[in-house]
Design a protein around this nucleic acid. Structure first.
Lengths: 212, 212
DNA sequence: CAAGAATGCGAGCGACCGCTCGTGTTTGTC
DNA sequence: GACAAACACGAGCGGTCGCTCGCATTCTTG
């Protein structure tokens, strides 16, 4: 039973190979960003990276694996940069501060890695990536629920869940607007996203500081 | 000059043809809804309609024309059902009433024609449809700006424009959530969308009735 | 420096997709 | 019923895309 499962580990990579992988992932990010996942051809990714199609398939078994590896690395960098997503609670912070810092963190990451949004938002992504997407989505919703549970003590669990989905949806919509603008206008949109969320949550909050 | 442009009008349709067209558009709506535009194959549409690929191309010059015609008919039905989108102003209505009625109208249309959202939301749609999408988007933003200009007299034009984009984005995000649920939960999400918008706009509103 | 492994190439295979075309069937008109 | 136009069919053409394979090159290792 144990030998029937193929382990493909004995593949020893050289430094050149690791460089090629990084190069290919960068190229893939570029192409995914501009054309989306399904429309992105592996030949185009190879061309963008300046290598042949055969070289690409030396390092990735198929097109999906490229996106999966890219997603994994982004996820890892996100966790590394921001520690744990959405620090659970801090009873002293106001609603505005909590929302503001959460939005700033996510916006910073997403504007620095636009591929993330492109991969997660596209309705075309196949099996494995959709799974990762759902998993991230569920995790995120859970975190937001925890955050909201402490911020909005008067709400029922079902209401908390619904509110969490609304918050995430609003954030995603705001992200799209933010990514579509630059400079001062972008900053203004970030502020608007914070406004929408704080004003939405304010009436639900208990005796929090910072109420208008 | 006048005869160089080809007029393809002399194509006289029989009742059977009109029926086939409606049948094909219904099938296309179904397929577009489940797979999106690009992933939808014309053969699949023909199969869904129970006809051969050749028959499909008897009535539509290409795949894009199917989506365009579908979009045109939806647009026409939207205008016919709701007269003009977003009745400009009514100085006596409260902010809650204005937001509530606008959201209800759009939600009713979009839940009855999920294709509309699928066609407008997909990042994959090609030229002509993207044009129609942009045109609708611009028109909608303009209407919302007009509405907001009378509701929020203290805001500058630039702020109005930004606020309009935020409102439309929030609505689209809410629509996605609404379409993902059914029954009582769906109703609850509709209410949440209204809550988000009213609470967002409330602090900007002048001496409107209905303020909390 | 040899030998083997890892890397690199690019023509091309198989599958699918948008679309066509030759042919046969149904419908409207006289 | 005769004739033409509209409708219907489905095999298949041209093109793209994901991916492979045979072979050349570069690196590592003893």
């Amino acid at each position: 039973m144990s030998d029937t499962s193929e382990q493909e580990q004995p593949r020893r990579r050289q430094a050149r190979g690791e460089r090629r992988i990084a190069q290919l992932l960068t190229a893939a990010a570029q192409v995914f960003c501009t054309t989306g996942y399904t429309a992105a051809s592996t030949n185009a990714i190879a061309r963008e990276a300046g290598v042949s199609p055969g070289t690409l398939y030396q390092f990735f078994p198929n097109k999906e694996a490229i996106a999966v590896e890219l997603g994994d690395r982004l996820m890892h960098e996100m966790r590394e940069t921001y520690g744990e997503v959405l620090t659970p609670v801090d009873p002293a912070t106001s609603l505005e501060e909590a929302v503001g810092s959460a939005v700033d963190r996510f916006m910073a990451f997403n504007t620095e890695h636009p591929v993330f949004f492109a991969l997660m938002h596209g309705p075309d992504v196949p099996g494995r990536i959709a799974d990762a997407h759902d998993q991230l989505h569920t995790t995120l919703i859970g975190r937001i629920e925890d955050l909201l549970a402490s911020l909005l003590p008067r709400s029922s669990p079902a209401d908390i869940t619904r509110t969490a989905h609304v918050c995430l949806g609003v954030y995603k919509a705001g992200l799209e607007l933010v990514l579509a603008h630059e400079g001062a206008e972008r900053t203004a949109y970030v502020q608007e996203v914070k406004n929408v969320l704080t004003r939405y949550l304010q009436p639900l909050a208990g005796d929090r500081p910072g109420a208008a």
